[in-house]
Simulated scan of single mutants.
Amino acid sequence: MCSLAKDIGIDLGTASVLVYIKGKGVVLNEPSVVAIDKNTGRLLKVGAEAQAMLGRTPGNIVAIRPLRDGVISDYDMTERMLKEFIRKVTGGFHLFPPRIMVCVPSGITEVEERAVIDAGRQAGARRVYLIEEPVAAAIGAGIDITKPDGHMVVDIGGGTSDIAVISLSGVVESASIKVAGDQFNESIVKYMRRKHNILIGERTAEQMKMEIGCVYPKEEEATIEIKGRCLMTGLPKTITVNSTEMMEAFEEPVERILEAVHNVLERTPPELVADISNNGIVMTGGGSLVDGFDKLITARTGIHTVVAEDAISCVAEGTGKSLDSLGDMQDGTVNLSRRRQMN
């Protein structure tokens, strides 16, 4: 069936893809995973169904994540994944292909930008626009970024953490580091190997992070029972892990994020630092939901820090809301920092 296409906002994340349709809100939230048949190159599954296959596939089927550290690592697979997600939310052929707004990490290079734009075009977009993640996160968190008032956003996703100071619809200072949710999972895997001589998979590490992960002492210690392979015997082994051990496992990636926040504050003009001190720091992204992250940043910076409501979909919401200003665009530019279009 032929129809007029809606404008679409896409949070193209390392861990998951969220799609926002103008007038409907976030309509899709699926893992950034594709499963293909190596022999034929045929796309078998996309999203949650493909994620269920990670680490569990026979020789001819491979489940891969086409985005790494916030950018495209496998162009062909990203394009096919996007095409499938767009088809899923729009329901087929359109007389006019949709315009798409994609959010990207603030530290992205021009080559990486071009890859995102080309993938969007090949996936069926009429035009592709880009917006920086921290700007989208701020809009999604309900911050009025058009005022001459400083706001700090810390967006911790799956592949990157983006820290930015925003004023007058633009990014004044920012940092994008490749330390986020995926690195937390890797830290858990390494810790379990080093401390308990047990090998666990990525999905088990993710479960531990979500259930007992913390970066600030909990009032009440939590525990979880996990299964893995003993490195001494090669046999299955079950052990109990507590939340204090998670703090120890997360120490290195957390310190790197705190260092980045500190560096951005150091480079920020004093007037804006005063604003941030009054307005506080807003955290978004799935990584910000690790227990106690807001308390830790408050303790280290002395600035009140809060986790945005619905932190996971903040970036997608902001990307979608910024679609409203597409009509104001002239020569491919708008007020938002470094947002671009390609014809």
Rank of each mutant, 00 (worst) to 15 (best):
183 Q>K: 07
226 I>R: 10
230 C>N: 14
227 K>C: 08
205 A>Y: 09
257 I>F: 04
252 E>A: 14
182 D>P: 00
229 R>E: 15
199 L>G: 05
208 M>C: 11
203 R>C: 13
211 E>D: 07
212 I>N: 09
259 E>W: 00
216 Y>R: 06
234 G>T: 06
252 E>L: 12
258 L>Y: 00
191 Y>F: 13
257 I>W: 05
218 K>I: 06
258 L>K: 00
260 A>C: 02
238 T>L: 01
210 M>F: 14
196 H>T: 02
247 M>P: 08
204 T>S: 09
226 I>F: 12
187 S>Q: 04
189 V>Y: 11
213 G>K: 07
226 I>E: 12
214 C>F: 03
234 G>H: 03
255 E>I: 04
184 F>C: 13
204 T>P: 09
207 Q>T: 12
223 T>L: 06
225 E>M: 10
192 M>K: 05
224 I>K: 07
237 K>Q: 08
262 H>I: 00
241 V>I: 12
181 G>N: 06
249 A>Q: 10
262 H>K: 05
192 M>Y: 10
247 M>T: 04
189 V>G: 11
258 L>M: 00
225 E>F: 05
263 N>T: 01
230 C>P: 02
185 N>W: 01
199 L>K: 15
191 Y>S: 08
187 S>H: 01
247 M>H: 04
262 H>W: 01
230 C>D: 15
185 N>R: 05
223 T>I: 09
189 V>R: 15
217 P>R: 08
207 Q>V: 14
219 E>K: 06
213 G>C: 10
212 I>T: 12
249 A>T: 13
182 D>C: 11
215 V>W: 06
193 R>W: 11
205 A>H: 08
244 T>G: 05
236 P>H: 01
245 E>I: 03
261 V>D: 03
195 K>Q: 10
244 T>P: 01
187 S>C: 04
249 A>F: 04
240 T>H: 01
184 F>W: 01
263 N>Y: 08
222 A>N: 05
199 L>D: 10
201 G>N: 11
260 A>S: 09
194 R>H: 09
189 V>Q: 15
219 E>L: 02
231 L>R: 10
206 E>M: 13
190 K>N: 11
209 K>G: 03
212 I>M: 10
256 R>T: 12
244 T>M: 10
209 K>A: 03
224 I>Y: 08
247 M>C: 07
227 K>I: 07
199 L>W: 13
259 E>L: 03
224 I>H: 05
218 K>Q: 13
250 F>G: 03
230 C>W: 03
183 Q>S: 03
212 I>Q: 11
222 A>R: 13
225 E>A: 12
254 V>F: 08
186 E>R: 15
230 C>M: 02
210 M>N: 15
216 Y>G: 04
222 A>I: 11
211 E>W: 00
194 R>D: 09
197 N>L: 14
207 Q>P: 02
228 G>W: 01
238 T>M: 05
227 K>D: 15
193 R>H: 10
188 I>L: 11
213 G>S: 11
234 G>P: 00
214 C>N: 04
254 V>M: 08
201 G>Y: 04
248 E>I: 09
255 E>D: 13
217 P>M: 06
250 F>D: 03
240 T>I: 12
229 R>G: 12
236 P>I: 10
184 F>V: 08
200 I>V: 14
198 I>K: 02
229 R>A: 13
194 R>W: 07
231 L>T: 15
209 K>D: 04
262 H>M: 04
233 T>N: 02
261 V>C: 05
223 T>V: 11
218 K>T: 10
229 R>N: 14
197 N>M: 15
235 L>K: 13
211 E>R: 00
